[in-house]
């Protein structure tokens, strides 16, 4: 079901992408309608798939890496559909659809992973954390798309090239605005996401679950990306020399590389983000035979993805284990 469902809407987006590419070679009256139809059909299938997983498989959206990626791709495609209505002659799909397809591909990679462990005490912070990181990811991807188109447009204008026949590229001013706003949104969302992550770590610390260490590759790349984006934003707001816009476009492209690194850390490196971690042992310093009991989803309960990170090195006395821990 998972594989077939993913292939179904990914194929719709793939066809829409191929049609966007075909704008470079020929004109057609029908193409716009077919692109719109394919994207809308894919988005409906995508929505149904997410809904199906949320209500029958995982219990809620954002409860696994797979769902997280699929939801990020869904937001990107929904944004693309809106842009398609507002600017039918601008091929935003050339940049946005490959990003969405990349996220869907990553979701397929993670399809076999277990959902995040859940704890009722941290579900609100978990949702805030996962939602904010998702928003930041989408904002970085949109900023990246705007940055790439900006550089392309700036290059064309420097070469004094006339308009392209098949489509209309947005103005530098529009792209700059889109880039800066996405950058600002990414910084705010990432700050919220990081704060929620720290809170989750603190809650886990209270519950004797070892926090996610600062040295975790995912934490390090996410923090690096946050500082990088913050510096870029400050530069964009306070300092605006002639080439600044182009620099900001480059910065967003590097931010995208940070994002890819973070995803690669999740995918390939040994990160304990979102995985079960055994609680500390009371006296001996050795881990007891305990594990965090996976939270069983009930119809009335809310669940969210949990990111656990916080200050490393805890040696002081801890409160007794909570009821959900079992020996």
């Amino acid at each position: 079901m998972s594989r077939m469902g993913i292939i179904c809407f990914a194929a719709s987006y793939g066809i829409a992408l191929l049609l966007e590419v075909s704008r470079l070679w020929f004109r057609s009256r029908l193409r716009g309608v077919v692109i719109l139809g394919c994207t809308a059909a894919g988005l409906i299938a995508h929505t149904l798939f997410l809904g199906y997983r949320a209500f029958t498989v995982t219990g809620s959206p954002l409860s696994s890496e797979m769902d997280w990626c699929l939801l990020a791709a869904w937001v990107l495609v929904a944004l693309y559909l809106m842009l398609l209505f507002a600017y039918p002659r601008t091929p935003f799909g050339l940049v946005l659809l490959p990003l969405a397809l990349g996220l869907i591909g990553a979701a397929g990679w993670w399809a076999s992973r277990e959902p995040y462990p859940q704890a009722p005490a941290s579900r609100v912070w978990g949702l805030i954390h996962a939602g904010a990181i998702l928003a930041a990811t989408v904002a970085v991807l949109v900023a990246f798309a705007a940055g790439v188109i900006y550089l392309f447009q700036a290059y064309r204008l420097k070469q004094r090239r006339g308009p392209l026949g098949g489509f209309w590229v947005p103005s530098l001013e529009w792209l700059d605005r889109m880039n800066s706003r996405s950058l600002g949104a990414a910084v705010v969302a990432l700050a919220v996401g990081l704060f929620a992550g720290v809170m989750l770590n603190w809650i886990n610390y209270q519950q004797h679950v070892p926090p996610l260490p600062w040295s975790d590759p995912l934490v390090m790349t996410t923090l690096a990306m946050f500082w990088w984006l913050l510096v870029a934003l400050v530069l964009a707001v306070w300092y605006r020399p002639a080439d600044e816009v182009r620099k900001v476009a480059f910065i967003t492209i590097i931010s995208f590389i940070f994002l890819l690194t973070a995803l690669a850390a999740l995918l390939l490196m040994n990160t304990s983000h979102g995985r079960n971690r055994n609680p500390w042992q009371e006296q001996s310093g050795q881990a007891p035979q305990v594990s965090v009991e996976p939270y069983v989803w009930q119809e009335s309960s809310l669940r969210g993805g949990i990111c656990l990170w916080g200050p490393a090195g805890h040696g002081r006395s801890r409160p007794p284990f909570v009821a959900q821990l079992r020996t």
Binding site: Q153, R156, L157, G162, P163, V169, P170, S171, L172, E173, W174, R177
Partner: peptide
């Protein structure tokens, strides 16, 4: 018309 529509409007939105 080329100066404004094909170039100026590619730089500025408004």
């Amino acid at each position: 018309s080329v100066a404004v529509a094909d170039f100026a409007q590619q730089v500025f939105d408004r």
